[in-house]
Write a protein that binds this DNA or RNA. Structure first.
Lengths: 334, 334
DNA sequence: GACTAATTTGCATTCCTATGCAAAATCAGC
DNA sequence: GCTGATTTTGCATAGGAATGCAAATTAGTC
């Protein structure tokens, strides 16, 4: 409709030059007088600076690309919300891309992100191919992996203490007096999945126990439910560590309702993440908390530094979590 | 790092003019020969058009602003995912804004959206003030309300059949042989909340029943749980309609675990939305399906039309849902 | 009031791509 | 091979805002 109002229009109305208008809105020096005139004229005309034009010249779009998968896992909408708030407070905005759950097509997504001259890219739980890695590096765009590591990757990463966390879970289950331990892993093609499996294993060994069975739950409800059933029925496990809460809920549904075993009397189940839903009375899931607030804060802080060209002291940030005792696993008797 | 590769660079490398490069990438006419040369040079240099510069001149940013609240209600991440996929397929991208759960500050958000020259704005479950309405209208940016109506609003809107849906729920509960009906409303300051309350009421009346009590659940778990408890303990309701699944889960948790009543033997609970979680075995919630796939499809289609300057035949689109019988409400005996 | 230092201002240019226009090249037809 | 029609190409400019530079204005000092 009404043609766009430009800084030219404001300049004319205020009786100053276009540069003056620009200076007022970009916070550069300007006299009180000009400030007032320009602000007034801008308000009258309904002028707002065109961010796209601005970024063309400053080279800063103030846009962060966020690639996210697994939105059905409550951990991610929750993190998204936090990212959104934190970044908006810093004047950044989020261009969002949802990746297919298994990471194909990510390369294409990121190409499109680069087209938008994003100032940085955050990949939540999404891996990046080598080819893409070099393209992003060549473009000189900071990138950060969230809740996902990648060995040999040049990018920053923020995760929880997957290794020690699952170690502690193993310990907890051993102390709970269980006998046969099973693990419903996250997708073992992901570093996070691998780390948690490794930590759990090491934790068991460290306490003289061992794994009776492990299945890949692929971060999917169906696969996890199936895996749990097998571990209980075939391997006769009485303690299950499920690699994230999202799958753990499926496991609980399967065991309680379909298989018909009592949790935790017959089988203990421990998750990982402590998403809000884990505290809901119907599940009341014993789990390991990934502090998403602190993870997001760290990720944002790091990203801002990277954008500013600083080299953060440490590229791989690990936020410590904590075991949350609830009612799906037998409590150790002290 | 390496300075950005521009169309100039490609032109030089390919031995053609900058305009030629532009034409190749924007699909305008160009000879086979030039096409090949340019494509080759672009590939060598790793050139990709700068979308921001392009949109500056075309006036189309290919960005859609999406304002979303209540991300803890699974309905919205789910919808977000669908929006993302649908819009990406059409070459659009999403700038996402999360609104505080009660809608203050939305005006500010949308101002920032406008700064980015978005081609359109979708507000999911978020109301818009009158002042903002006129600003958006003045800017000539198409806007669409998703899962939220607004009387007298000039904007397009896509909702489910809230009125007839909750009417059917009332009917279902009456036929189930219940005696005292309670309603845990959505936030009654929202049109959706009002409509569902109204439909439920009318449905009861139409079958000779009436409402024994209603509380505002404010779309929050805590408020809903409290409301349900009151309706059961004080109003002795044996049938509850909860205005969305998100609250219904809280109600089930409260009633089963905290209050200790049997669902559906003592109290029936029906939700609204049919989010994926409603089908999970632990809840197995009887509810009314809002077909988010069709709602999103309709929203996207309408938005594209609006952007193209077409006037859609109908501004208020209502997608019919369906009652999903599960196990939290007594089944009517035919 | 004169003279220097410090601010403020405007001019002109830049960021990168798309596009109207005119010139150049290609094609078609005889 | 020539003419006219059509396509391809390059030139120049636009789109909106930021910024280096120099000119103009103001403030500061004695």
């Amino acid at each position: 409709m009404s043609r766009k109002v430009t800084s030219q229009d404001v300049a004319r109305a205020a009786g100053v030059s276009q540069s003056a208008v620009s200076r007022v809105f970009s916070g550069a020096s300007a006299s009180k007088n000009t400030q007032a005139k320009v602000r007034q004229a801008a308000a009258d005309l309904g002028y707002r600076p065109n961010v796209l034009a601005r970024s063309l010249i400053t080279g800063q779009s103030k846009i962060i690309g966020l690639v996210v998968a697994y939105l059905d896992n409550q951990f991610y909408p929750d993190a998204l919300q936090r990212f959104s708030n934190a970044l908006h407070d810093l004047g950044y905005h989020i261009l969002i891309f949802t990746a297919k759950t298994r990471g194909e097509g990510v390369d294409d997504l990121i190409g499109r992100l680069l087209d938008y001259q994003v100032d940085g890219i955050i990949c939540a739980s999404v891996g990046v191919s080598d080819e893409l890695t070099s393209r992003v590096e060549a473009a000189g765009i900071p990138m950060l992996l969230f809740n996902r590591g990648q060995t040999g990757s040049p990018f920053a990463q923020v995760t929880s203490d997957n290794l020690s966390g699952s170690h502690k879970i193993a310990e907890y289950l051993v102390r709970g007096g269980h006998e046969r331990f099973g693990h419903v892993a996250g997708w073992l093609g992901s570093s996070t999945g691998q780390q948690r499996a490794k930590g759990f294993n090491q934790g068991l060994e460290a306490h003289g126990a061992h794994l009776s069975g492990q299945r890949d739950g692929l971060y999917s409800r169906e696969a996890a439910a199936q895996a749990a059933r097998e571990l209980v029925e075939q391997e006769r496990c009485d303690a299950l560590f499920v690699s994230n809460d999202h799958m753990a809920f499926a496991v609980l549904d399967e065991l309680r309702v379909k298989v018909g075993v009592k949790v935790p009397e017959e089988v203990s189940v421990v998750g990982y993440d402590d998403v809000p839903m884990a505290a809901w009375a119907s599940y009341d899931l014993t789990t390991y908390r990934q502090p998403s607030n602190r993870m997001v804060a760290a990720a944002v802080e790091t990203m801002i530094k990277l954008i500013a060209g600083e080299v953060p002291e440490t590229k791989e940030i690990e936020i410590p979590g904590a075991l949350i005792e609830r009612s799906t696993a037998r409590w150790p008797k002290e």
